[in-house]
Amino acid sequence: MRYTLLLHYQEMTPDELGAEVLEQGQAAMASYAATLQQAGVLLGAEVLQPSHASTTVSRREGKLRIQDGAFADTREQLGGYFVLDVADLDEAIHWAGQAPGADWGSVEIRPGAVHTVDGVWTPNA
């Protein structure tokens, strides 16, 4: 079963974090990704650019609305994600509990409904 671990945490610039903390965080995430890869559960992962680099699109009353930045007005933003293929929610919780991001924010676990590979949509099972 496919689960996406959504990493939410307070955004800080590299200067606000400090070089040492930034380096430690990057090393922790690289180690976590390597552990997931070695366990054979990692399907994909991505660190996202800060929310100010995002664009949010919605349609209201037939009109397209384009907004610079993230839609959520909160201190914590989506910073990255890991897509896992694991047996069940318990295993997803196990891996989420090991995510370094859980120490400085939160990890949302969301099951996939369908996924596509080479243009073929497949229900999550």
Rank of each mutant, 00 (worst) to 15 (best):
T56E: 04
A92D: 03
T35P: 00
A125R: 12
T116G: 14
Q10H: 07
G40F: 08
A99V: 11
A53G: 14
W104H: 08
D103V: 10
P111A: 12
L89P: 01
G62T: 02
Q49R: 14
T56N: 03
L42S: 12
L36T: 00
A39P: 02
A96P: 06
G40Y: 05
L42E: 09
A34P: 00
G97M: 04
L78I: 01
A96M: 01
T116A: 15
D85I: 02
L6D: 00
I93P: 07
A45M: 13
E61S: 07
A99P: 06
L5D: 01
G105L: 02
A96E: 06
A113C: 13
D68F: 07
A96L: 04
T116H: 14
Y32R: 01
Q98W: 10
R60W: 07
T55I: 13
G119W: 03
R110I: 05
L89T: 09
L78F: 04
D73V: 12
A70E: 01
E108T: 05
D118K: 14
V47M: 15
R59I: 12
V47Y: 06
M12V: 07
A125G: 15
P111C: 09
A87Y: 03
Q98H: 12
Q38N: 08
D73T: 11
L22V: 13
G40V: 05
E108W: 03
A113F: 12
E11N: 01
S106H: 07
E23W: 06
Y81S: 12
G112L: 15
G40P: 01
P50M: 15
D85E: 13
E16A: 04
M1Y: 04
K63L: 08
Q10C: 03
H52K: 14
A27P: 03
L64I: 14
L17R: 07
T55S: 08
A125L: 15
T55G: 10
E91A: 11
V120G: 02
A72T: 04
G80P: 00
V41R: 04
V117I: 12
L84G: 11
G101P: 01
D90K: 09
L7V: 00
Y9C: 04
G40I: 03
K63R: 10
A87F: 02
P111N: 10
H115F: 13
G101R: 03
L6K: 00
T4S: 04
V21K: 11
H8F: 00
D103C: 13
E91W: 07
A70L: 00
P111L: 05
A125Y: 09
S51Y: 12
W121S: 15
W95E: 03
Y3T: 03
L89E: 05
L7C: 01
T56L: 03
I66M: 06
S106R: 08
T35Q: 09
I66T: 09
G97D: 09
G97L: 05
T4D: 05
L22R: 10
D88N: 04
G25T: 08
V120K: 05
T4Y: 01
D15V: 10
A72H: 05
Q67T: 13
P123L: 06
T122M: 08
H52G: 15
A39M: 04
L48N: 15
Q37Y: 11
A96Y: 06
F71H: 04
Q26E: 10
E16M: 04
V47R: 14
V21C: 12
H115E: 14
A102E: 02
Q38E: 11
I66P: 06
Q37H: 12
G44L: 11
R110E: 03
L84D: 06
L7D: 00
G62N: 01
A87T: 06
F71T: 02
